[in-house]
Simulated scan of single mutants.
Amino acid sequence: MLNKNEIIQTAKQVLHTEAKGIKSIISTINENFVKAVELILTTKGRVIVTGIGKPGYIAHKLSATLMSTGTPSFYLHPAEAIHGDLGSITKDDIIIAISNSGETSEIVNILPTIKLIGAPLISICGNASSTLAQFASCHLNAQVQQEACPHNLAPTTSTTVQLALGDALAITIMQAKGFTDKDFAFYHPGGNLGKIRLKTVKNLVKMQNRKAFITSEKNIYNAIFVMTDSGIGAVGVIDKNNILLGIITDGDIRRQLKVYPDLLNKNVKEIMITNPTTINENQYVSEAILVMEHHKPRPITVLPVIDDKNHFLGMMHITDIHH
């Protein structure tokens, strides 16, 4: 039975060993990785990922990550493949096979048929001289010196490295495709991210009910009360026809206090930001987030929402996406 200190030390040692395994393969990322990415980007079919045992779980995860980031993929169990499921592979597909030894019999047995079909094969394994690596169109090195298991038997460091390599592959492909957070939300409509980011700004503003505005004849004293009630530190300035003229933020007021000791009595038009950055009601929330994050010279946290005729509809705050 381990004591408290031994439990902590064992956990730290496992993490150190696995981190060392990942760090050791960084220097092996080379032209083979580039070739693997190019093969996947140019394939006309699906990315079929296979593996058995612990690497099989990694294969499942890699396939799921590829699907969620816009690359058609599915997992193929090698034992099922050899009993008929090889029929799901076409010459337009690409195969990723994961095995630590590169000699896993269930995978080795399907390699000749894959070659006859004509589908390119990417191997992720720890032995460059193995049957799998030699059969592959492209080999990605996943070799580790030591499993985290004290007996150097249970797949631990090796599967962590396979997982990390798979993630590196999937994310590189995602970036090469220009896959955006809007695309991510599109493929995750059931998740909170998808539900919020695929909403139009109009729907979000209606849901949050942030109609923080003040008419142009009011003074700063009045604006502060509206800001306080809204809780977002900004207020839209409108005319009598509800046309947006500008906005005032709590930061604007703090800065102007240094210049005007009698600021509270000044008309809002005197310090408001004219021609502020806005977002149209029909744009997606994901687009509004990008506008706020990429605003120059610095990101902003609020956006006035307007319709096609510049009527003020409300304020969107960056925190609205988390509610």
Rank of each mutant, 00 (worst) to 15 (best):
K4Q: 15
N5G: 12
I8V: 09
Q9Y: 13
Q13D: 15
Q13T: 13
V14S: 12
V14H: 09
H16C: 07
A19D: 00
K20L: 09
S27E: 13
E31P: 00
V34C: 15
I40R: 02
L41E: 10
T43Y: 10
K44T: 10
V49D: 03
I52V: 14
Y57H: 14
Y57D: 07
L62S: 00
L66T: 00
T69G: 02
S73R: 03
L76H: 03
E80Q: 04
I82H: 08
G84P: 14
G87C: 15
I89G: 11
T90V: 08
K91G: 08
K91L: 07
I96R: 01
S101K: 15
G102H: 12
G102R: 14
E106G: 02
V108R: 08
N109P: 03
L116H: 05
I117N: 06
G118W: 09
A119V: 02
P120R: 00
I122T: 05
I124R: 04
C125L: 04
A128Q: 14
S130Y: 05
T131D: 03
Q134P: 14
F135P: 03
F135K: 11
C138F: 08
L140Q: 14
T159D: 11
L163V: 06
L163A: 10
L163I: 09
L165A: 07
G166S: 12
A168W: 06
A170D: 03
I171V: 09
I171P: 02
A185P: 01
F186L: 04
H188F: 05
G191S: 09
N192C: 05
K195N: 11
K202A: 06
V205Y: 01
N209A: 15
N209R: 15
N209V: 12
S216E: 06
S216R: 02
A223P: 07
A223R: 00
A223S: 10
M227A: 13
I232W: 05
A234R: 12
V235Q: 01
G236S: 15
V237K: 11
N241H: 10
N241K: 15
N241C: 08
L244D: 04
I247L: 10
I248R: 13
R254G: 14
Q256S: 08
K258M: 05
N267Y: 04
E270Y: 07
E270N: 13
M272C: 11
T278R: 14
N280L: 12
Q283N: 04
Y284L: 09
E287L: 07
K296S: 12
P297Y: 13
P299G: 09
P299R: 09
I300A: 13
P304L: 02
V305W: 00
D308E: 06
F312I: 11
G314L: 06
D320L: 14
D320V: 12
H322N: 10
